[in-house]
Design a protein around this nucleic acid. Structure first.
Lengths: 345, 345
DNA sequence: CTGAAAGCGCTTACAG
DNA sequence: CTGAAAGCGCTTACAG
């Protein structure tokens, strides 16, 4: 029942632990282990089903070959697929992935980072929560490799991979305007996060450049923590207060989903009564009738770029010497929820 | 830059490592550490930001307080949410979660199990792949705690949490029959997995009991590995060969999604030309027009029951002494894709 | 009430 | 070409 150790292998072969270790770590040649010895060792290892104990290895080397992935919510389409691709890429490079969800809660995020540091993860890929500045600063001064994804911490220089939220939002709004919509409602969440602010800026600039009026009163912002019910109620109320709107811009995909429900309940037809577009794609938007126009995040790009960048930082001497950012262009996918506006009869 | 260790704390306080260790592990009282000493130690620990090195701890104790979660695909709605809930429950109980996706590939699954064993995970929650029997047997004889979820390995007694696939399928078929449908096509994947076989059995029994004819020719089975395109083509062909069908039963949710696309392409309207039901819910089915009737897996139940069962096994002496199974009842959610059949005029 | 010391299973500089 | 030994940072039986 007891697990086999290198000592057992060495003893049975009348050789030393050193030799076994060299074979296991592929250093036979470099260390001048004879091919005969090497074969003997390898054979017994596979016969006994020996596997090196990784706790001992980590303790000794300080390297765990594990990366910590901290996302907002692993149950969500975007992060679930990010995790999946990162895992595949990490495995290719001999790394494991330890994941956890923050639910966008600062305390949870802090605990996760600490927990992972004690497990000696070699580096992090982090979806920051709003108040994570101090923790991130500490990682930086401690020279721990990490890459921020999806959102930045204002005023800290880090390695990052993010979407060009401004551009996506600008282009999505521009698309609506080009198709003849002019009274566009912007529905977002109340947030200091750079990504949400960029999306708002993109919307506002597109409107302003087109000479269309916007006021803060014509925008709806709900709380991230609000229940689905609360949000839907808020959107319904908003629609009643703004009967002149001809299009809605949802700043996140879950707001889009809730918004569609709210529109249904109000008896408003998409796109005839109201055109809609949403930031962030999901399976749903593609298959709904009508299908929904979106600014999509190229998930594959984001995931592969972040793991690639992280591994590079891990293998650098001066971890944070020079930070590097990758900005991913969103893809505007035009579907049926935002056709050329029919002129009123 | 160097991390603080227990030794540093002990030295600075002129006390022993033992004392520090007792304080950290909450054994002060039991071991008779004076409150004064305890406070001194605690203060310095938080001042220095000390955190015990978990590799050393694992090496020494053999317990990692980590559970390994092996799912089919973390990017998928069902498993993503399973993972999320398991993580939350595990954290509540002081456990971490190490996850990985098998993509339903035997070799990947085997590698994952081995990798996790070397990292001394305390137990596993596993979505088995078809040829995983030997690995599972080994876990069993090695007395390693594990719980199978979502699907079983035929002829091996294990701890498990699965859905009552037979019942869900039976009831879903019964619902169609009760609503007047009699020519029901069954679309599934070619698979030896117990869950798929149970779903087929449930369908067949419901049909037989109702005195409705079924033949293997009236069922379509595609390969799990088929691309979306291939499946859609197969479904289209199937529909042309069986023009008399009045309803379709999709045995998985992704088949349902592809089926809906195929129906759209064939110009068949749901539910007037063809009623449909699907096994497994997802966000999509709720929001499509028409919304889709499903047998839903109570994700929350499945996740909490499996982690609860696993933790209990971990804390038992005789890990596999008596295996325990939990069978979860699916929930039939009746939506708009399967209304009472209109009589032909 | 507290400390010295063994040992978990590895890796690696050093010695021969 | 190969081995003896130190040490990574903890926990815990043992001693006092």
């Amino acid at each position: 029942m007891k697990k086999v150790s290198m000592k057992d292998i060495a003893k049975e072969l009348n050789t030393s632990i050193t030799t076994v270790s060299f074979v296991i770590n592929g250093k036979s040649e470099e260390m001048g282990i004879s091919p005969a010895t090497e074969k003997k060792v390898r054979d017994l290892i596979s016969k006994r089903g020996f596997n090196p104990n990784s706790a001992a290895r980590i303790l000794r080397t300080g390297k765990s070959h594990t990366i910590g992935l901290i996302v907002e919510d692993i149950g969500n389409y975007f992060f679930g697929n990010i995790a999946k691709i990162i895992e595949i890429e990490a495995t290719k490079n001999g790394y494991n992935v330890f994941f956890s969800s923050t639910e966008n809660n600062d305390d949870t995020a802090k605990q996760l980072i600490n927990k992972m540091r004690n497990s000696s993860v070699d580096g992090y890929i982090i979806t920051a929560t709003p108040g994570l500045k101090d923790e991130i600063m500490k990682l930086k001064t401690d020279n721990v490799p990490f890459v921020l994804i999806d959102r930045l911490i204002p005023n800290i220089e880090t390695n990052y991979v993010i979407l060009d939220n401004y551009l996506g939002s600008y282009n999505l709004t521009k698309h609506l305007i080009d198709n003849g919509y002019s009274k566009i409602g912007f529905i977002s969440i109340l947030s200091e996060m750079s990504m949400m602010m960029e999306r708002e800026k993109g919307f506002l600039n597109a409107m302003t450049i087109a000479g269309l009026p916007v006021s803060s009163k014509s925008m709806l912002k709900v709380q991230f923590e609000d229940t689905e019910e609360t949000v839907i109620k808020a959107i319904k109320k908003y629609l009643q207060q703004h009967p002149d709107l001809d299009a809605l811009f949802f700043a996140t995909n879950y707001l889009g989903v809730m918004g569609i429900e709210a529109l249904q309940k109000c008896g408003l037809k998409i796109p005839d009564d109201m055109a809609i577009v949403s930031f962030d794609d999901n399976d749903l938007f593609r298959l709904l009738t009508p299908s929904i126009t979106v600014a999509a995040q190229p998930i594959n790009d984001i995931a592969t770029q972040s793991i690639e960048l992280l591994l590079r930082v891990i293998n650098k001497e001066q971890k944070q010497a020079k930070t590097e950012g990758r900005i991913i262009r969103p893809e505007i996918i035009i579907r049926d929820s935002s056709p050329k506006k029919k002129s009123k009869v």
